[in-house]
């Protein structure tokens, strides 16, 4: 319980001494946990990370993936990460900033990766997500499509899918859609 006597004294004190400490920045528990995730990152050579707002803003960053095998070898794909103050209670918001012909990434940059939504758990980390994203490029999956057309081509005609991917990455049209060069 509160000691009312002390409360009274404190009131008086406050009245006499109004200048407190300078306002300080509050670091949320989410930021601290993110600091841990980031300081423990162990990325393969194919993945890079950058912090557009400098070393003290870890809540917004970008990840670059350069697959060294599979359909997307040689391409460069940029992802933006936005982290909530209640991370890891809530999963990071991840968008693909590079327009890509991919069954699990739509043309708006939405990514269908289970651990970003329905299967996110607080024990997972930024490292896990980056590996998950990398995996999407080595093993694109026609069973969880966000780009319906790309998924159908991958399923029915992998050769055509491969040449579509090549064309898109080199900068060109697949069907009606133009993809900027990303190799």
């Amino acid at each position: 319980m509160i000691n009312l006597f002390k409360v009274k004294e404190k009131r008086k004190e406050l009245a006499e001494n109004a200048n407190g400490r300078p306002p300080v920045k509050k670091q949320s528990a989410g930021e601290l946990r993110l600091h841990k995730d980031i300081s423990e990152l162990n990325l393969p050579k194919t993945c890079g990370i950058s912090f557009p707002n400098g070393k003290d803003d870890l809540m917004n960053f970008e990840v670059t993936i350069r697959p060294d095998e599979g359909y997307y070898m040689g391409g460069t794909f940029l992802f933006s990460f936005q982290i909530s103050p209640i991370y890891p209670h809530e999963a990071p918001k991840v968008k693909c900033k590079t327009k890509v012909y991919h069954p699990n990434i739509d043309l708006e940059g939405n990514v269908c990766l289970n651990i970003l939504r329905e299967d996110w758990k607080p024990v997972l980390s930024i490292n896990t997500i980056i590996y998950g994203l990398f995996h999407l490029f080595t093993e694109p999956n026609h069973e969880d499509p966000l780009n319906h057309d790309a998924a159908a081509v991958l399923r029915d005609n992998p050769k055509l899918f491969e040449s579509n991917v090549r064309r898109a990455m080199a900068g060109g049209y697949v069907g009606q859609t133009f993809f900027p060069r990303c190799v």
């Binding site: 300080v24 920045k25 670091q27 930021e31 601290l32 600091h35 841990k36 980031i38 300081s39 423990e40 990152l41 162990n42 990325l43 890079g48 990370i49 950058s50 912090f51 400098g54 070393k55 003290d56 870890l58």
Partner: peptide
């Protein structure tokens, strides 16, 4: 150890880009 103080990252062991900056 990586060290953070009131939202300022004083030293980061990883990733290399932050290690270099700190």
């Amino acid at each position: 150890a990586s060290i953070t103080y009131r939202g300022k990252n004083l030293y980061m062991q990883a990733p290399p880009v932050l290690e270099e900056m700190t």
